[in-house]
């Protein structure tokens, strides 16, 4: 009988001791977590693309709560989502609640002050409540790959190394005769967190505008620096980034811009100009009428929507 009591006393005593230690720890080692962070994380796109410079959306949310970054730092979020984040930050800002109560007024989990009346609380909650449709609106910019070369751009040698553009570009300057030609090893496809870049049958990668969220990861990864951000409304793009003179380009590529100037003349909106032997579209003026596409002798000008295989 005594044995049972001893055992119970020891186990119970240990439990009591551990309980005291745990209670002490929970008080002394408590890390104050900002209740806003979890809400902000929910409001962010949640794809952890890293375009903001933070490792992931949760870290960006923490930085938002600290006030070290602005909501505009997330380029992937749609304008509506950004507005929602801004509204949340305004209302949940430590300075004062939307109802005017100062920072020390005490708050509930959503960061709404406890002094608000129920009606006010509901208004604020409505403003913060994500609509039934989660944040999936398109970003304002998308990436486009300014090369239409592919098999029509001349190779100087056969590249047989590791399938990575960054290595290919270091191998004697890349296997293409043109210094700004796509090397077709798929590094942009690999880094895209949204699977928005696909390989065309002819070997060239192409951005699918509906899937691109404008995170610029491909822009940073491309060793040739031929991926550019254009307004989402862009209808036409120049599939070349070679600044070489016409005759040089013609020797290297069948699709390259030879700076003939036909598109400049054909453009009714005067949206195209020639810069360093390359046609450049001013997207604030371009109406997408397609006149330039029809006159371009090398088919450098192309519609964004159509697959580029319109040669």
């Amino acid at each position: 009988m005594m044995r049972v009591l001893w055992a119970a006393a020891i186990v119970g005593g240990l439990g009591f001791l551990f309980g005291i230690v745990l209670a002490w720890c929970s008080k002394k080692l408590y890390v104050a977590a900002d209740p806003r962070v979890s809400r902000l994380t929910d409001l962010l796109p949640g794809v952890n693309c890293g375009a903001c410079g933070q490792p992931g959306c949760a870290n960006f949310a923490e930085a938002l709560a600290d006030g070290t970054v602005q909501p505009s730092g997330c380029v992937v979020a749609s304008p509506a989502a950004r507005k929602k984040i801004e509204a949340f930050l305004r209302q949940a800002a430590p300075a004062a609640c939307a109802c005017g109560t100062p920072a020390d007024g005490g708050r509930d989990v959503a960061g709404v002050c406890t002094l608000c009346t129920a009606a006010e609380k509901k208004d604020i909650a409505d403003a913060l409540e994500p609509e039934s449709e989660p944040v999936e609106e398109a970003a304002q910019e998308m990436a486009l790959i300014a090369c239409g070369g592919g098999q029509r751009a001349r190779n100087t040698f056969a590249y047989t190394g590791v399938a990575d553009c960054r290595i290919a570009a270091k191998t004697l300057g890349g296997q293409k005769a043109c210094g700004s030609a796509c090397l077709e090893q798929g590094t942009c496809i690999e880094v895209c967190p949204f699977q928005a870049i696909r390989v065309q049958p002819e070997g060239l990668p192409r951005v699918i505008p509906e899937l691109c969220r404008g995170c610029r990861k491909c822009v940073a990864a491309c060793p040739r620096k031929i991926i550019f951000m254009v307004p989402r409304a862009a209808k036409i793009f120049v599939r070349c980034h070679s600044r070489d003179k016409g005759p040089v380009v013609m020797k290297r590529c069948a699709v390259g811009c030879i700076a003939c100037g036909k598109c400049v003349k054909a453009c009714v909106a005067q949206a195209i100009r020639l810069e360093n032997n390359l046609a450049v579209i001013d997207y604030t003026r371009c109406t997408g009428c397609g006149q330039c596409v029809s006159v371009c002798p090398t088919k450098t000008m192309s519609f964004v929507e159509l697959p580029p295989a319109v040669v």
């Binding site: 190394g161 590791v162 990575d164 960054r166 290595i167 270091k170």
Partner: peptide
């Protein structure tokens, strides 16, 4: 195996 090519890939990555 093209070990060196793989290491070069890590270096540029």
């Amino acid at each position: 195996r093209r070990i060196l090519e793989h290491i070069r890939l890590l270096k540029v990555g």
